[in-house]
Design a protein around this nucleic acid. Structure first.
Length: 433
RNA sequence: GUGGGAGUAGCUCAGCUGGUGGCAGCACCUGGUUGUGGCCCAGGAGGUCGUGGGUUCAAGUCCCAUCUCUCACCCCA
């Protein structure tokens, strides 16, 4: 701790032990996304501020107070991925390639909020979007995919769904709701009183006990949907049931971003403290046109990687163990042993074998210890003695058995023989690979 | 942005009402074993007690500020 420089608030390092989990999650996600026909798209993490203001909504908390913006340059670190993805989609005219595009991306997002459990200022999302399809079956498929990913990761999450209607039916619901809430405004929390004008739908999801009481008697948006939206929602539900995806309807669920229409959903868990959402998403049928693109519907979701990692870490059961850092460790003794070992290790690596050695001339005991620590299955002991009699000692670290390993032929063929050995010989015990 | 809790070794943490920083555990190094890992034993190394001020003969301990972590509000992945 010589330097008094630390990571800035809300940003954190992910150390090698934890990276193992990250890679696991990312691998699973890629695997499943590919199964569903999604292609990866990689996006810049910075965009013109205007993009987020126009898509997420001027009056949302994200845009009003949580963005990392370079004011002098008009640029902003992305607070979410959908806007960037759609920008790229429109910019490159991807809709001409095929009528329905399925894209995913993953990476860091930035929001200037107060950090707490499962919430960082730089956090990571897995993001999947389907553009160009309006069929309810697509909504169901997308949710099924999220559900499958969480299930394959071994996580317990509930799926809650709702419909927020469309520009044809939401405004009238909003009016109905405001009329109702006005009657009880006095009983509601100060936040909700303030939201009465700015974002009355948000009151439906308020945690305050008083508000919950009021909201319990409020009209439901599901009763106010126009026939097309109502039909869409019914068929989304049918789709989920058809695929046996468990879900519940939560007519109070609202979203923090303005662009959502019709289907919205959240994957929630009780094990994350105040942050119950592991992932969330919804349909945004007007957004692409609003950003200057073709008039195309879209739907997508984002999963919070940190939140998934937290859940995995809380889980009982066997931990993920990092892969061995070395398959074979060459223990060198003496100056000649060191020179020969260095070449051998290099040739092994060239041949695709994870090989390691120690250059500091430490005792054999210390080197064997290091071999064990690296998870090496074999140790090859090469000292000046071995070189002079042209025969090294090969030790199987699990069975503790040792055998001679001839060094008569060239270093290259020795390396080749060792590689064959490492890749073909079965482990002595049922030790994880 | 608001409120509670907390910062002592790489990690987890003792340290009472101020009086020399812990034979603490894990990890690390060395030795016990002339050249053989995991267990055991012995020894060793490792600290601006988050940072900056203040009170005091004396501050890890009390006071103020600040930074960070943490939990919650707000909001959200």
């Amino acid at each position: 701790m010589a330097l008094n420089i630390k990571a800035v608030q809300g940003f954190k390092d992910i150390l090698p032990d934890e990276v193992v989990l990250w890679q696991h999650v990312e691998q699973r996600a890629r695997d499943i996304f590919h199964r569903f026909g999604f292609g990866e798209i990689r996006l810049p993490i910075i965009e013109e501020t205007e993009l987020f203001a126009r898509s997420i909504g001027q009056t949302t908390d994200i845009v009003e107070k949580e963005m990392y913006t370079f004011v002098d340059k008009g640029l902003t670190l992305r607070p979410e991925a959908t806007a960037s993805l759609l920008r790229a989609f429109i910019e490159h005219g991807l809709h001409v390639l095929q009528p329905v595009q399925k894209l995913y991306t993953m990476g860091p997002m930035f929001r200037h909020e107060r950090p707490q459990k499962g919430r960082l200022r730089q956090f990571h999302q897995l993001d999947a979007e389907i553009i160009g399809a309006t069929e309810p079956a697509v909504d169901a498929e997308l949710m099924a995919m999220g559900n499958m990913l969480l299930a394959e990761l071994g996580l317990q999450a509930k799926l809650e769904i709702n419909s927020l209607g469309c520009p044809a039916c939401r405004p009238s619901f909003r009016e109905k709701l405001v009329t109702y809430l006005r009657r009880f405004a006095g009983e509601m929390c100060p936040d909700c009183q303030r939201r009465l004008e700015s974002n009355p739908l948000r009151s439906l999801d308020c945690k305050s006990q008083h508000c919950k009481k009021v909201v319990a008697g409020a009209p439901s948006i599901l009763d106010s949907l126009c026939p097309p939206c109502s039909d869409h929602f019914a068929r989304v539900r049918e789709g989920l049931e058809h695929l046996s995806v468990p879900y519940s309807v939560n007519h109070c669920m609202v979203r923090g971003l303005d662009y959502y229409t019709r289907t919205t959903f959240e994957f929630t868990t009780a094990s994350l403290g105040a942050q119950s959402a592991v992932g969330a998403g919804g349909r945004y049928d007007g957004l692409i046109a609003q950003l200057g693109g073709a008039s195309l519907p879209g739907i997508g979701f984002a999963l919070g990687v940190e939140r998934i990692i937290l859940l995995l870490q809380q889980q009982e059961g066997p931990r993920l163990t990092p892969a061995a850092q070395a398959e074979i460790f060459v223990a060198a003794l003496g100056e000649n042993g060191g020179r020969y070992s260095q070449l051998l290790v290099h040739l092994l690596r060239q041949g695709g074998v994870k090989a390691a050695m120690d250059y500091s001339g430490r005792s054999l005991k210390a080197q064997m210890k290091q071999a064990g620590r690296l998870g090496a299955r074999f140790a090859l002991i090469v000292g000046d003695n071995e070189l002079s009699r042209q025969s090294a000692v090969l030790r199987d670290m699990d069975s503790q058995s040792q055998e001679d390993f001839g060094l008569q032929d060239s270093p290259q063929s020795c390396a080749d023989r060792l590689r064959t050995l490492v890749t073909t010989r079965l482990p002595a015990s049922g030790r994880p690979a």
